[in-house]
Structures are given as C-alpha cells and as structure tokens.
C-alpha cells in the first residue's frame, strides 16, 4: 500500500476509508440544522432568531457539501449567510425601538392560517419526495459531477429560458427598488 498516495487522496476527498466519518458529519450538520430551525420557533429575541437562521442555513450547506454538491453549498453560504441574513439583521436593527426585540408569542388569530399553510407545504414536499423516481446507484460520482462548467453549460443551453426569466425578474426588482427609493426621497 502506498501511504503517500493514500494520504494525498484522503486530503483531497473523503474516500471509502473515511466513510466511517460520514454519519458523524451528517448527524452533526442535520442536528445543527433541525435544532436551530426549531429554536427559531421557541426563542423570543428576534435578533437571536436571525442568528439561529444562520446556523440552520449553514448546517444545510454542510449537508450539501456531504452530498458532493460543493457549488450549491458555497452558493448557499454566499446567498443566504452573506446576503439575505445580513439584510434580515439590517432590517431588524433599523426598525428597532426597544433595547431587545421580543416576539409576540400569543395566538393572534393567525393560528389557523398558519397551520393550514404548514400542512399544505408539508404535503406538497412530502408528495414530491415520495413520488419522484430517485435513481439510486452504488457507483461513485463521476469526477466532474459538480463542476461549475457543467452548471454553466446547462444554464446557457437547456435552461436558458428560466435563467433569462430570472434575470429579467431581478432587473425589474432592481428598477422597482430604485424607483421606490427615489419617490420616498422626493416626498420626505
């Protein structure tokens, strides 16, 4: 056995020999993700909730990483942790009047719609998970399974329409935001 080769392979990617660690990582990430999502519901301080969302989203990024979807994992961190979370925190802090923001925990007549929305979402996701024909295989992933080149090619060929639609939507949002800000500035 060539130890050097083994070591460099180990350093590059977890192989079969290291598969024993995969459950450890999986459960760590899964527990972090699920427990912090639950805690968001229970914790009263809204800023803490925002930080808990961060740990939940980062746990999800870790799960993507374990699945070999590096690009998705980094995108998750970039978009959610670096972008959306910061905007949430920014919004929470800008609208802050009290020293500590406390969520209202009493039922306010939104219980029924909330439960209904939750049920619909749960059923929809559960239905799609159960009905999709997952292709299970024992083969290792091809080396270029998750390269940005393949994603880029797919986006610019097979999925060009959704891609361009998303760009137009974002452009509209940008222009709209600029307009809204300008009108506010003129009035105030």
């Amino acid at each position: 056995m060539n130890i050097l080769n083994t070591l460099s392979i180990l350093a590059a990617a977890p192989s079969e020999a290291t598969a024993i660690w995969l459950p450890v990582f999986f459960w760590t990430f899964a527990l972090v993700s699920v427990l912090s999502s639950l805690a968001v519901l229970v914790v009263k301080d809204i800023v803490r909730c925002a930080f808990l969302i961060m740990s939940s989203l980062s746990g999800l990024a870790g799960l993507y990483l374990l699945l070999g979807a590096e690009f998705l994992a980094f995108t998750q961190i970039m978009v959610y942790v670096g972008g959306i979370l910061i905007l949430i925190l920014f919004g929470v802090m800008l609208t802050n009047r009290e020293p500590l923001l406390i969520k209202r925990m009493k039922a306010t007549g939104l219980v029924a719609p909330g439960v209904l929305a939750g049920l619909i979402l749960f059923t929809a996701i559960g239905y799609s998970v159960c009905t999709v024909d997952w292709k299970v295989t024992d083969q290792p992933l091809p080396a270029d399974a998750d390269t940005p080149a393949r994603i880029g090619n797919a986006l610019m060929s097979d999925f060009i329409l959704p891609f361009e639609m998303a760009s137009v939507l974002l452009l509209v949002a940008l222009v709209g935001a600029a307009m809204a800000a300008r009108r506010g500035g003129a009035e105030g």
């Binding site: 930080f51 961060m54 590096e70 690009f71 980094f74 995108t75 961190i77 970039m78 942790v81 670096g82 972008g83 979370l85 910061i86 925190l89 940005p148």
Partner: peptide, 15 residues
C-alpha cells in the same frame, strides 16, 4: 472552486 469559496466564506466575518 477556490475563488468562489473565498467570495462565499468572506461574508461570514461580517455576520
């Protein structure tokens, strides 16, 4: 994905 990793993780510090 080196450079992409840098761009993604670099924002965590601000959090």
């Amino acid at each position: 994905l080196g450079l992409f990793f840098v761009a993604a993780v670099g924002a965590v510090e601000v959090v």
